[in-house]
Simulated assay, not measured.
Amino acid sequence: MSPHAETIADWLLAGLELKSTIFHVGQYCGAWQASTAGRHRASFHLALHGECWLHLPANAERAAQSVRLAAGDAVFLLHDMPHCLSPDPRPPARGQESGRLGSMSPLSSPDDPRQPADGSVGIACGFFEFNSGLDDMLLSLLPDYIVARRDNPSLDGARAIFDLIRAEALRDVQTPSPLIARLTDLLFVYVLRAAAGRDEIAPCFWSLMRRAQFAPLVAAIIEAPAERWTTDTMANFVHMSRARFCKQFVEISGQPPAHFVTLVRMKMAAAMLRGGSSLPDAAERVGYQSESAFAQAFKRVTGVQPGAYRRRAVQPAAQSATLQNTASVSPPSFTALH
């Protein structure tokens, strides 16, 4: 990963509050089709053993796709979107992309000599969500799905995490371990860091990092959000005309440059408010001289006023500190009676 991409990935991951939940862990044999679509949540699938295919129907931004998943591969679907997994490389009939067929059985025990069953596919599926209160903003910066390959050199560390996930899944094949969800959180962090290297991702924030002329600009905006980042300033930074800059920026990232700058600023402002910064201080540090203009921009992006966001974020921290202080008080001593 380039130094600029590293800066950008670390910035996005900072303050990312991800929570995964396991839906089911098991294996399929024969003809089957599985999907987590239709539950209005982002989801993931981990191939524990065997191989299968991820089928994604066409939408306005991409053609229909069928992606092979082998043991150790993972897919993160960052939106609730039509899809399915199946053992067939051919996609299902139109309108059946999110259908379900067959039943999942428990994973074969590691002590079972038949393990894994011939032709079986072991899968761990679940859901995840961002808890930072900036879900829509964060998701707008990411591709709609990410496939992580076990043999990707950028995911060396992730392979150890996957091995731990599989070990946890096999510890008790009847009851999924709660540690699988926590390990999946960590796996997603590794996957997100490697997403910048994907060639096939649709236009999004990460696409900018693959362009030599845009990655330094994005890093500069993140490092100095209070600067006056007008369209002309950004075009001059990358040595382009205003028209060419705007056209290429939208084609690559899927959003206009001014909107991107606002997203960067509001993410940073949210982090400062969670840390207890005052509204005027947060506004000034992300480039707003007017507190009212800052409040309008913050609500437009997050859906809540900055004051309400700060109170909601600071109160739990204050309550936690109070509990810790209470716990640290020494209990009263008593004189032993003889």
Rank of each mutant, 00 (worst) to 15 (best):
G15E: 00
S20I: 08
H24V: 00
H45D: 09
H45G: 06
L46P: 01
H49I: 00
L56S: 08
Q65K: 12
A71Q: 12
D73H: 08
V75S: 00
L85V: 03
L85D: 03
A93M: 11
G99W: 12
D111Q: 15
D111W: 14
P116S: 07
G122R: 02
G133E: 10
G133F: 06
G133S: 01
D136V: 08
D144Y: 11
Y145L: 05
S154H: 15
I161Q: 05
I161S: 05
F162K: 06
I165R: 00
A169W: 03
A169I: 03
S177H: 08
A181G: 05
T184D: 00
L187I: 04
V191P: 00
A196N: 06
F205G: 15
R211F: 12
Q213E: 15
F214D: 07
A215T: 07
A220E: 12
P225G: 04
E227W: 09
R228M: 09
T231M: 10
D232E: 15
N236Y: 08
N236S: 14
N236K: 11
V250K: 13
Q255P: 04
P257F: 00
S278K: 05
L279I: 15
A282E: 05
Y288M: 03
A297D: 13
V304I: 13
G307E: 11
A308L: 11
R310N: 08
R312L: 11
Q315D: 05
P316Q: 02
A317N: 04
L323C: 09
S328P: 10
